[in-house]
């Protein structure tokens, strides 16, 4: 690794030890200050309330659906079967033995609770994380395809293609993403969904407007990254390829793009990390992604400190994983 410090006189062992300690001390101080601040506003940390928003178990009452008499209760270990008899026949209910509320001979009306079973399912935060993952993944796909096409159009000699690309890039880069999301959902979405209703088709889920907004937004940036990557490949490569008789398309696909890819990947990773973070804006159009889910969790748990810290860490996990993946791709692409 090249270290700029190598141009100065060599640093001693103590130098590194000292400044590493300074870093560790700074980090410790920051954490301590944060804790002290929370204590001074009498905030009570309740980390134990967080896990339920990742995975939650809920109790579901089992109700009788008909009137009748309990003719039999067959207990077999964990579960029990209640047999309900009435003039029209027999009804059977499976209930956990520990929660049995009735016994043989009881008269039961419709709606009476016979027992309680539990079901576990992902909590709000995990659901939000999945939505963020889904939206980001789709938008990365869309943005890559759109960006690649626009980048190629941007360097085309055909004015219609080139100017279309420039117009698209400039418009998208020149307005805030939040405004674009509103435009796609409240303007385009209203028109489309009204047409859909008129044609008796189900309206499109807000999630797709979110994916559309993010794809189109990141596509403009990806296009510029692709263009810069292609133009960074020495022009002699294109000349050599064409001088052998390859067509422009063949030369681009076989010679230029594979070489450009190596230079495109690092800035592309940065772009997609931004995209994952930008997906937090989609809460405004009723997509319950991680940030919106966190907001809901805060209002129900009343533990904003823990929830927002967890939310930030979850984003960090997503972005860091993507970053590692791209580094792996970079090593693979010679």
């Amino acid at each position: 690794m090249h270290c700029p410090a190598a141009l100065d006189r060599p640093k001693g062992k103590g130098y590194f030890l000292f400044w590493r300690s300074v870093f560790a001390l700074g980090l410790g101080l920051a954490l301590f200050a944060m804790y002290q601040a929370s204590v001074s506003v009498e905030y009570i940390w309740r980390w134990n309330r967080v896990p339920q928003y990742f995975w939650t178990t809920e109790a579901i009452d089992i109700h009788a659906t008909q009137e009748g008499e309990v003719s039999r209760v067959e207990r077999s270990g964990e579960t029990a079967v209640i047999v309900l008899r009435n003039p029209s026949g027999e009804e059977r209910y499976v209930v956990p033995t520990a929660t049995l509320r009735v016994d043989k001979g009881d008269l039961v009306s419709p709606g009476d609770v016979l027992g309680t079973t539990t079901r576990s399912r992902p909590g709000l935060l995990l659901e939000g994380l999945f939505v963020t993952l889904e939206v980001s993944f789709l938008a990365i796909l869309g943005g890559t395809v759109l960006g690649l096409m626009t980048g190629l159009a941007r360097i085309s000699t055909n004015p219609a293609l080139r100017w279309s690309a420039i117009t698209y890039i400039e418009i998208i880069r020149g307005s805030p993403l939040l405004v674009q999301i509103f435009l796609w959902y409240f303007v385009v979405g209203t028109v489309v969904n009204q047409l859909m209703t008129r044609w008796d088709v189900a309206p499109i889920d807000p999630l797709w407007y979110g994916v559309l907004a993010l794809s189109i937004f990141s596509g403009a940036y990806v296009a510029e990254i692709v263009r810069a990557g292609i133009q960074s490949v020495h022009r002699g490569q294109m000349e050599a390829a064409r001088s052998l008789g390859l067509t422009y398309t063949q030369a681009m696909a076989r010679i230029i793009l594979p070489q450009a890819m190596r230079r495109i990947l690092p800035p592309l990773a940065g772009q997609f990390i931004s995209l994952i973070k930008d997906s937090s804006l989609l809460g405004v159009i009723a997509i319950r992604e991680l940030t919106k889910a966190s907001r809901e969790v805060v209002s129900s748990s009343l533990q904003p400190f823990e929830v927002w810290i967890v939310c930030a860490i979850l984003y960090l996990v997503l972005t860091f994983t993507l970053s590692l993946f791209v580094q792996y791709l970079e090593r693979k692409a010679i």
């Binding site: 020495h234 002699g236 490569q237 000349e239 050599a240 390829a241 064409r242 001088s243 052998l244 008789g245 390859l246 063949q250 076989r254 010679i255 594979p258 070489q259 010679i334």
Partner: peptide
């Protein structure tokens, strides 16, 4: 161009391919 070979001052070999691939690419594609 397939009938007119050209050799450049800066070689312009394709750096992402082996020597053999450099030689076979155009033969196969063109």
């Amino acid at each position: 161009r397939a009938e007119v070979g050209m050799v450049f001052q800066s070689f312009n070999l394709f750096p992402h391919m082996t020597v053999l691939e450099n030689l076979t690419l155009a033969q196969r594609a063109v």
